[in-house]
């Protein structure tokens, strides 16, 4: 209980410490101690303003998700560069698609929307008022249903395991 009050948000403490060490740019004991200090004080001060604390599970899954997204970003870059360079504007088929969401927590939906924006030919443009669908713009989507299926199978399923 005492530990809980001292570290209201252990994950934030760790992230802040790592960010501090990276900003200082030297891995010395001074930087680590000061980073932990920063990570201790900031969560305590900002605690009243948090809307909620998302629970994260499966650290291995998170690492897997990050690697998959990084790889997809590389692929996305090559694909988009190919479309920009080699397709005539008349041949590109842009489309808005509406993706039904199974995710419920706002944090998970935010991560999904961010992922969609960073990956192959898609930008998330709007979210429904009830938070149960996402408006996505595709740069070149001859088959919108395939894009929906891919996003749900590749990203949403993994995020559901991590966040919910």
């Amino acid at each position: 209980m005492m530990l809980r009050r001292l570290f209201p948000h252990p994950l934030l403490t760790i992230v802040l410490a790592i960010v501090w060490v990276m900003l200082v740019n030297t891995l010395t004991i001074n930087a680590v101690v000061f980073g932990l200090g920063v990570g201790l004080v900031i969560p305590l001060i900002t605690a009243p303003y948090w809307p909620g604390r998302p629970r994260l599970r499966h650290p291995v899954r998170i690492a897997e998700y990050i690697l998959i997204v990084l790889w997809d970003i590389v692929v996305a870059n090559v694909q988009v560069a190919g479309i920009v360079l080699f397709k005539r504007n008349a041949d590109i088929r842009p489309a808005f698609i509406s993706i039904p969401l199974e995710l419920r927590t706002p944090e998970a939906i935010t991560v999904l929307a961010g992922t969609i924006t960073m990956t192959p030919g898609t930008v998330s443009s709007d979210v429904a008022r009830d938070g149960r669908s996402l408006l996505v713009h595709c740069l070149d989507a001859p088959d919108p249903d395939a894009v929906t299926r891919q996003i749900k199978a590749r990203y949403e399923r993994r995020l559901k395991e991590i966040f919910e």
Binding site: F96, I97, S98, P100, D126, R129, D130, R132, S133, L135
Partner: peptide, 13 residues
């Protein structure tokens, strides 16, 4: 714009 599912509207609208 394509409609949102479950009869909802997009937040921007």
């Amino acid at each position: 714009v394509v409609p949102a599912r479950h009869g909802s509207v997009w937040a921007g609208y």
